[in-house]
């Protein structure tokens, strides 16, 4: 039935949805299409190439000069490194985020608002600038090195352009994404539950494990989603702190669209990234479902 209300709703929604469809939905569809094409001689794409899965096969198998096809792990390593870095970052953020959020929730109202603002601000400041700050610090003539050298005289630490540097950068970039959703749960927490647990003879550890942690779970899963997904597709952090050695999926995509100028291959990696993301989201949903039963 077309009611007045429906007409109004469609009229109000169509500008934004059209914009998102044209600037996000349509491009993603073209991206998926291109991932089945071949690179062009002069441009990024040969639009008349036959459709095929060559770009996806290239991710794992390569053709030698003499025509033999062999398995290689060049790109698999990048994917694996990205997944491990994202998982490690998420895990570390949970370990730090839960106590930090707990501390925030236990503060009196006024101080709490200031701390929440302080945790929120990094979210809205340039990721590029914040990662650049670590680039300065981790350089061989940077502050970390200087501090470490003062304590233990010896070689330079050489942290920059390593997996560790990328890990630090990722935690730095996305830690607020973990703290805020967990805090949102603890903020509404009924503290008398904790008192009840103490009253029933539970020690702090048991009260935490049996009462606080289960209640924090929705916040933790939300945080895990907000940290893992941008980590997986991170570009700036590995580009600044990882250098050439520590490539992640995001850099690989950029390479194909930049210097290598192989758009179809870049598109196929983008699709793989989206697929990994979906896989993670589905796994998380499944796990949440299982827990709630």
């Amino acid at each position: 039935m077309i009611s007045r209300e429906n007409i109004r709703r469609v009229t109000l929604l169509s500008p934004s949805l059209t914009m998102l469809f044209v600037m996000i939905g349509l491009p993603l569809a073209i991206l998926a299409w291109i991932s089945l094409l071949q690179r062009g001689v002069t441009s990024g794409v040969d639009w008349s190439a036959p459709l095929g899965l060559d770009n996806y096969i290239r991710l794992l198998w390569e053709e030698d000069f003499d025509g033999t096809i062999f398995f290689h792990t060049r790109y698999l390593e990048v994917v694996l490194r990205s997944v491990l870095l994202a998982a490690g970052t998420t895990f570390f953020c949970i370990i730090v985020g839960v106590p930090a959020a707990l501390w925030m929730a236990s503060l009196p109202k006024r101080g709490r608002d200031v701390i929440v603002l302080l945790i929120t601000i990094p979210f809205w400041t340039s990721l590029l600038v914040r990662n650049y700050a670590w680039l300065i610090i981790l350089r061989d003539d940077g502050s970390v090195n200087w501090v470490v050298n003062a304590l233990i005289p010896g070689d330079d630490v050489g942290l920059l352009y390593t997996n560790t540097a990328v890990f630090i950068g990722l935690v730095y970039s996305f830690l607020p994404f973990m703290i805020l959703p967990i805090y949102a749960v603890f903020e509404k927490f009924d503290w008398s539950l904790l008192e009840a647990a103490y009253d029933l003879g539970a020690g702090r550890a048991r009260a935490f494990r049996k009462v606080m942690l289960p209640i924090a779970m929705p916040g933790i899963t939300a945080g895990a989603m907000l940290v893992f997904i941008p980590c997986l597709g991170a570009f700036i952090t590995p580009a600044l702190l990882g250098g050439g050695k520590t490539l992640m999926i995001g850099n690989l995509i950029q390479l194909q669209f930049g210097p290598s100028r192989n758009w179809p291959f870049g598109a196929s990696i983008s699709i793989v990234l989206l697929a990994l993301m979906m896989l993670f989201l589905m796994g998380l949903a499944l796990w949440k479902n299982r827990r709630s039963q």
């Binding site: 998102l20 598109a267 983008s270 993301m277």
Partner: peptide, 20 residues
């Protein structure tokens, strides 16, 4: 749909828009 740009990796949005 309205929140899609929040969850999609920025790099994918960027290259997809470039292609478009």
């Amino acid at each position: 749909t309205l929140n899609a740009p929040l969850i999609l990796p920025e790099i994918v949005i960027a290259v997809a828009t470039l292609i478009l």
